[in-house]
C-alpha cells in the first residue's frame, strides 16, 4: 500500500541558526583524513563526480573527449572507478549517450531553461521532454527563484512536481541556486519544497552564480534530507556543485555526509559532486598516496 506523505506548510520550515551552522561545518574541516581512510575516500570521491561541461561553446568533440575521460580517469592507475555521470546541455545528450555506451556512466542533462529558469512552464517541460527523449538518465532542473523569493511556494512546488512527471524513469535533481537564496532559512525551505514535490536529489548551484556550493550550505541541505527521511522514509540525494576543485575540500564534504546521513548515503547513488577540475586533483592525491611524491599537473590529462 503506498503510504501517504503529508505535505507540510513550507512557511513553517525549521529555522536555521547561521552561526551554529558555520561552526558545525568548520568543526568537520578539523577531521584529519590519513592513509587508508584517505585513499578509500579519494576513490569514492572520484566515483561521485558528475563531470560537467555547460558552456555555450561546447562542441561534440569536447563532449566526446569528456566522455572518454569519464570512463578512463587514469589508465596508469589500475582499478580506479569511473565517474558517476557526465553532465551536459540537452543538445549534447545524444552525443554523450553514444560515447558512454554501456560503460555504466550516466548522462545527466540540465533543463528547464538552465541556468536562470526564466521562461514559461510549457517551455520548461518541453526542454525536459527533449532531454529525456535524447536519452538523459538524470535531469538537473533549476528552481524558479523569482517565484520562490516572492513567496509563491505552491507555484514552485507544482512546477517541480510537473517536471518530475515528465522525467519518467530519469532521476530528478533540483538546483536551488543557493547563491541567489542568500539565507539559510530560505535554503532550508527550498530544500523542503523540492523534496516534498518529488526531487530525487537536491543540488546547491548551477555553477553560474557566485557563491556556488560551500560546506555550510551543504550542511543545511543534508540536515533537511535527514529530517525528510525521518518524516517520510524516503532517501534523497545531495549534489553540491560549483567551486569544489580540491581533493581536500572534497574529503571535508564526504566527512560531512558521513556524519550527518551516515553510511547509507556514502555512494554515488545518493551523493554527487558537480565539478570539472576536481577529478584531476583527486587523481593527483591518489598518486601521491601511492608513490609518495606529487606529480606535475601535466601528468594528468585535462579531459
Amino acid at each position: 500500500m503506498p503510504e501517504t506523505i503529508i505535505i507540510p506548510d513550507f512557511s513553517l520550515s525549521p529555522r536555521i541558526d547561521q552561526v551554529g551552522i558555520e561552526e558545525r561545518a568548520d568543526r568537520i574541516t578539523k577531521r584529519s583524513i590519513k592513509k587508508e581512510s584517505k585513499v578509500s575516500l579519494l576513490k569514492l570521491g572520484l566515483s561521485m563526480i558528475d563531470l560537467t561541461t555547460l558552456e555555450g561553446k561546447d562542441s561534440e568533440g569536447k563532449v566526446k573527449q569528456l566522455c572518454y575521460k569519464a570512463k578512463h580517469l587514469l589508465d596508469s592507475y589500475p582499478s580506479l572507478p569511473t565517474v558517476a555521470a557526465v553532465c551536459v546541455y540537452p543538445s549534447m545528450v545524444k552525443t554523450a549517450k553514444q560515447s558512454l555506451g554501456s560503460s555504466g556512466v550516466k548522462v545527466a542533462s540540465v533543463a528547464t531553461a538552465f541556468p536562470s529558469g526564466q521562461t514559461s512552464l510549457d517551455i520548461k517541460l518541453e526542454d525536459v521532454r527533449f532531454a529525456v527523449e535524447q536519452g538523459a538518465d538524470e535531469v538537473d532542473m533549476v528552481l524558479s527563484r523569482g517565484k520562490f523569493l516572492a513567496g509563491d511556494y505552491n507555484y514552485v512546488f507544482d512546477e517541480i512536481a510537473a517536471v518530475k512527471e515528465v522525467c519518467g524513469e530519469a532521476r530528478l535533481k533540483v538546483i536551488l541556486e543557493t547563491g541567489e537564496l542568500v539565507t539559510f532559512d530560505k535554503v532550508r525551505r527550498a530544500s523542503d519544497i523540492a523534496m516534498y514535490a518529488g526531487a530525487d536529489f537536491i543540488k546547491t548551484s548551477t555553477g553560474k552564480v557566485s557563491p556556488a556550493a560551500n560546506l555550510p550550505v551543504t550542511l543545511v541541505m543534508l540536515l533537511a534530507i535527514r529530517d525528510f527521511y525521518y518524516k517520510t522514509g524516503r532517501m534523497v540525494g545531495m549534489k553540491p556543485a560549483g567551486g569544489i576543485s580540491k581533493a581536500k575540500l572534497a574529503l571535508h564534504y564526504l566527512m560531512m555526509l558521513n556524519e550527518i546521513l551516515g553510511g547509507d548515503w556514502m555512494n554515488n547513488h545518493w551523493f554527487r559532486f558537480g565539478a570539472s577540475s576536481l577529478a584531476n586533483d583527486l587523481l593527483m592525491q591518489l598518486m601521491k598516496e601511492k608513490t609518495g611524491i606529487y606529480q606535475g599537473k601535466d601528468y594528468f590529462p585535462i579531459d
Binding site: E3, T4, I5, I6, R31, S32, I33, K34, K35, E36, S37, K38, R226, Y229, Y230, K231, T232, G233, M255, N258, E259, L261, G262, G263, D264, M266
Partner: peptide
Amino acid sequence: MATKRDNTLKLKFDSARKLS
C-alpha cells in the same frame, strides 16, 4: 502509519567513526 515508520528508521554512523 508514517509515525510508526518514523520511529524505526535509523541512520548508520559506524563508518563516520572509523578513520585511520
